[in-house]
Simulated assay, not measured.
Amino acid sequence: MGPYIEVASAEGAWTQPLHLPTTLSLQLVRHLLTDLARTWPVAAFLPGTADEPVDEVLLYRDPSRTYGTPDTSACDAAVHRLVASTGWTRGAALEHGGAIVGLGLREGYNAGAREHSPGEVTGHLLATSATGWKCHAARLVSARLVDHAVRWYEEDGVVIHAESRLLPTVGAAARTCAQHRYVVTDLAEQRTYALQQRLGGSSPS
């Protein structure tokens, strides 16, 4: 048995790429996504690292044992509101096949914890296969309304789009980076699920 177990899931593999008509500061994008989180739980990947400006956003669903998972119609409605208020545009749907996984690079959720490098993740993937995957640096962000206030979480990480056969390798990379929890958007199987370490740690959602 592996070090991770499935703790929450939802049918479907909803994602929505969004293109910004002009590059915006991370602070402004954070403000806009926080506003959206008052009506819809935001989970997103922002390509880049640290405080680099943003020109693209990839929204996805993060299943939660505590709060559940919005259905795809609620997700589409949230995107409609965001596009209408910001002028952002929808990108083409991600190609079918494989899975999308975001991995943080910081061990656990303590801001002062050790941080790993994107190269450590790509090293795991290269050791298994030279093809069938893409990996790039991104900020992993989430925002959820809890007790009338939006709780924001942000961490430097990587986004991996890989063939399904490479998911065990992604899990090994998650373990190396001491990730407590991560989400798989499985485009091939059309389901979304959260995996969590069998022992230790606590989740922000």
Rank of each mutant, 00 (worst) to 15 (best):
L20D: 08
A93V: 13
A44M: 03
S129R: 07
T89I: 14
P17L: 14
A143E: 08
D62C: 09
L126N: 10
C75M: 01
A111P: 05
V101G: 01
G112P: 03
A50Q: 11
W133C: 09
G91F: 13
S85M: 05
G91W: 08
P47R: 03
S73Y: 08
A130H: 06
S129W: 06
E52V: 11
A92I: 10
T89H: 09
V57W: 09
T49F: 04
E115T: 15
F45E: 01
G112K: 13
V141W: 09
P17M: 13
R139L: 15
L58H: 00
H124K: 06
W88V: 02
H31K: 12
S142Y: 01
V83H: 01
H80A: 14
V83S: 04
H124S: 04
V42N: 01
L26W: 02
G48M: 11
G48T: 12
N110H: 13
S85P: 06
R90T: 14
C135K: 06
T72E: 15
V101P: 04
P53G: 08
A78Q: 09
G132T: 12
S64I: 11
S117M: 05
K134E: 15
A44C: 13
A78D: 07
P70W: 00
E95W: 00
S64K: 08
P17A: 13
P63I: 08
E107H: 15
T23Q: 11
L28I: 14
S64Y: 10
Y60C: 12
L59F: 14
A93Q: 14
P70G: 05
F45H: 05
A137W: 01
E95A: 15
L32W: 02
T34G: 06
G98D: 10
H31M: 11
W40K: 07
T131I: 11
T128C: 11
L20Q: 01
R38I: 03
S85D: 15
G102L: 06
E120M: 03
